[in-house]
Write a protein that binds this DNA or RNA. Sequence first.
DNA 1: CTGAAAGCGCTTACAG
DNA 2: CTGAAAGCGCTTACAG
Lengths: 327, 327
Amino acid sequence: MSKGLVSLAINDRPGVSEATRLRVLEVADRLGWRPSLPARTLSTSRTYALGLVLRRDLRIVAADPFYPAFMAGIETVLTDEGRVLVLSVVGSAEAEERAYRTFAADRRVDGAFLNDLRHDDHRVDLLRELGIPAVLVGRPDGPAPFPSVVLDDAPGVTAAVHHLVDLGHRAIAHVGGDPALLHARHRRRAFEDAVAARGLVPTAVVDTDFSMAQGASATAALLAGRTRPTAIVYANDPMAIAGLGVLQEAGTQVPDAMSVVGFDGTEMARHTHPPLTTVRSDPQEWGAAAARTLLALTTSGSAASVELPPAQLVVARSTGPAPGPTD
Amino acid sequence: MSKGLVSLAINDRPGVSEATRLRVLEVADRLGWRPSLPARTLSTSRTYALGLVLRRDLRIVAADPFYPAFMAGIETVLTDEGRVLVLSVVGSAEAEERAYRTFAADRRVDGAFLNDLRHDDHRVDLLRELGIPAVLVGRPDGPAPFPSVVLDDAPGVTAAVHHLVDLGHRAIAHVGGDPALLHARHRRRAFEDAVAARGLVPTAVVDTDFSMAQGASATAALLAGRTRPTAIVYANDPMAIAGLGVLQEAGTQVPDAMSVVGFDGTEMARHTHPPLTTVRSDPQEWGAAAARTLLALTTSGSAASVELPPAQLVVARSTGPAPGPTD
DNA sequence: CTGAAAGCGCTTACAG
DNA sequence: CTGAAAGCGCTTACAG
């Protein structure tokens, strides 16, 4: 039983009789022997690791339940495949680029997840150039050399606007996210299109950085504005919750005087007062699907893009009939 | 310029003249050459990676801003040291043990963080046995073979109780966390001791799993109980926020009819209505300190335990004078 | 179907 | 202070 034979048997390569393979596996198991990963990596240059770089302001990451759920979804598939997740949390675009370059130089990972897509996202070229296979988490705004895993935000936002208009609202505002991020643009665009489809004009559309602080100040600004909306659609739940706080501090009843819609469908949204009407996506399944796709890409060299079920409106008690004279 | 020489120069080993070392580094830099990590790992068995296994119910992880901040803190020190974080998110004790065993078998990491300490935590023995150096994040309840990095919860909880008693509260309840976790026990113990120190008896102490759902139901139970508290101290901010929701749904004014105290000092606590009195700790600094300690341990073989500044009470508007006839 | 050999790219004694 | 050699533990053609 030579080294080479064992290797062939362990790696399910042809050229080993089934009987021998079983014997090898049995002996390895009995001895508790496992091939050394560093040695294997040195000769095959496969690391059995996938990389995720998070670039976000800490204040935002900390309040946003997306990433923990997304990562948990990734793990559900990696664990079974003997893979591991290498995580990097960075605070700037420069640090993010350094992180990817280090991944490449150190051969840390077989592939990477690319989250929070941007317009003309130069990280796509960077990863291609570095030779790191990637999966795009979200819909890119142009042709891309990598497969994408998409969960469409638009239908949920559209449904939210129709829900509000059906309740009699005519003055609806949007507190959007960071316009540098494509998904924030998608939500904003879906909002604007849906409002227009009902023959209305948005009362206001405010960009933010997705933080609760900016969600709060945007809400305060809307309350102080010349034309005050009767409903606000927020680009994420944390901002909607901060908005709820501002409204209640100002004595504005929700939903009697103001309807509020969040986005994410977080646990938190179920426990506010009143519980939040929100648009639910499934970040855990998103993570799992992204991991499956990236795994396929790194092992077979190619993988098809995936379209997940779109985000859905979940109506709770933060939305109600428009106040004042309705027709 | 032989391979060996280059290696000595790159690794700052003695036996190379300063002039040659500089020349080697200059040439490496010009050629963009970096030593191959897998090869280096194979000969030195150092991976330059640190491991973190998260075992928590997803519902809790997602609502809890501790981990994102803690991990960001870790990253601030790892990045500069050319290290990387390997993350595993698991749902059960068995999966957690498997994760550590895989870390060891695959030589994935040089050391690991041990969070969410438990009574007689058998992971400590497991890691010792597997030969994985670790740092304990929190105060262990007994002698341990690893250094710990402690941020004491008690002073903040104690201050919260005194604050409430000073406001005239005599009926104070505690919605605790998961009693399997030492930090939940510490918070509970600090609560009970502080109440006793003021000559009072807790109106109630309820254990939970730290989830918003159980925070909400514990609050509902307290409202329905025979002796109703005038103040509730929660073991984390998410539960306090869920409690706020339940109280407001029930028409109980905060703080007029009920004072509420959270724990964590999250961003979220600043944006509720009313803003939450809470106990602030610094999870990011905690992560950074834990990373520094683990780095020292893995490189030098030993590291001293660290005691960080304790958690502090931050008074906001969810606490006020006790309702009814005060003396 | 099996065994002996080279190679992955470093580090580390060991001579010179 | 420098160069040649062995070794880390696998995988992979290449002969037998």
